[in-house]
Structures are given as C-alpha cells and as structure tokens.
C-alpha cells in the first residue's frame, strides 16, 4: 500500500499548484477566521477581514477551476502505474474500490492485518475528499449570509430565516471551520503516516520510485 511508487502522473503540476493555493488560503482563512471570531491581539481587524474575504474568493475560484480541470486533465488511475486517463474517473465510483469500504474501515480499526486493494484513492479517502466540495461552498454561503452587504439578498436572507438569524449562522460558519480543521488533521496524518513520499510529491513534485520500478 505505502511501498508503492509515487509517480508525477498521480499529481500533475497543475494540481500541485492548486493544492498549494488551497493550503495557503485555508491557513489564512483559519487564522483570520479565528481572529474575527475573537481578536486575540490588537490592530489587525481590518486586515483580517480583507484577508478572509480575498482568501475565500481565491478558494472558490480555485475549487471551481479544479472541478472543471478534472474533465480535461489526465492523471494516473492506479498507484503503481504511469498510465493516465481523465482525472474525473478518479472521482467516480471505481471497480477497484467495490466492496472495499467496510474492509478499509476494518483496516484502520486494526480489525484486519493486510492492506486493502484500492484505486488511486481508497473509498474512505474519496468520500472525504468529495465531501469537502459541498462543504466549501456551504462555508461560502454561510459566510455571505453573515456579511453585511450580501445578507439582505433573498438567497441568503432565506437561509438566515431558516436557521433563526445571523447569530446561529455565525455559529454554523464557525463550527464549519472546525470541520475543515478536523479534515486537515486526519488528511495530513493519513497521507504521511507510512512515509513522506506523498508530501514530497504533492508539495515538491518529487517522485519516489522504489528499486526495480521505473
């Protein structure tokens, strides 16, 4: 599972860049978000708000671009192959992951010894990654709903009425950030638990190829 090669074909340069943009913006969003929630030092509110808005616009544009690119960019479909196909196929259900969801859960709960056969992304992994898409858009929605200039728009005020006003929306927006923090913790942990080859690939675009492979 982890001893497999990490070829560049798994993450072409364009997705290395979108991943970087995402990481930087998410760190800025979390930091400025915590600051706006409770300013823990003085003199930064105007900057924090500006940073928060800009970073989120970038995240949304980046995410939308990433989704569209999935239909055009070719990536590897398998961990031990340089063979590429359209990236979107990695996000749809794949034959290799069939019947493997509960086996994956069992593996992580130490209820089985062997690693499970999977496509480039395992079933749990794929579900978690896909879930961040609606969550990101939801976070943008809840953000606009508590943002003065847009909260009166019918699209957002309807949501405010639904959750019982701006205070509740603020709390939802705040807890939404924690969902992303939890995701990032688990994501970073699982990606690097075996070795740092995945990080070398996604951040530095450096391949790790075990002996005997090419």
């Amino acid at each position: 599972m982890a001893g497999h090669p990490h070829y560049r074909e798994a993450h072409p340069l364009i997705f290395v860049i979108t991943h970087w943009i995402n990481l930087i913006c998410m760190v800025m969003l979390a930091f400025s978000g915590f600051y706006i929630h409770y300013p823990f030092f003085d003199g930064f509110m105007g900057v924090a708000r500006g940073m928060h808005f800009v970073a989120m616009y970038v995240v949304i544009i980046n995410l939308t671009f990433r989704i569209i690119a999935a239909f055009f960019v070719k990536t590897a479909q398998s961990l031990d192959s340089r063979e590429v196909d359209l990236d979107i196929k990695n996000w749809l259900p794949q034959e290799k992951n069939r019947h493997q969801f509960f086996e994956t859960v069992k593996y992580y709960l130490f209820l089985r010894k062997e690693g499970v056969i999977s496509a480039k992304y395992g079933s749990l992994q794929k579900i978690a990654y896909l879930a961040t898409i609606p969550l990101t858009y939801l976070q943008a929605y809840t953000g606009f709903a508590i943002y003065g200039p847009t909260m009166d728009w019918g699209f957002f005020s309807g949501g405010l009425d639904l959750v019982g006003g701006p205070m509740n929306m603020r709390i939802i927006h705040y807890l939404g950030m924690w969902v992303f923090i939890l995701f990032t913790m688990v994501h970073a942990y699982l990606a690097n638990i075996y070795n740092f080859a995945p990080s070398k690939l996604i951040f530095l675009w450096k391949e790790t190829v075990p002996e005997g492979k090419h």
Partner: peptide, 28 residues
C-alpha cells in the same frame, strides 16, 4: 485519537513500507 492511532500503526508494523497487501478482495 490520531496520536493513539499512530502508536497503533507503529505497533502493527505498518510504518515505512505499509502493511502486506491482500492478494484478493475479502469479498471475492
């Protein structure tokens, strides 16, 4: 939880090259 899990992964000998892989899906 992650720290505990990491200790578990280490104890299970999965760190490094990962666990031995299954030859065939459990279902099959």
């Amino acid at each position: 939880g992650l720290v505990l899990h990491g200790i578990g992964m280490k104890a299970a000998g999965r760190i490094g090259d990962g666990p031995p892989m299954e030859e065939m899906k459990a279902y099959d």
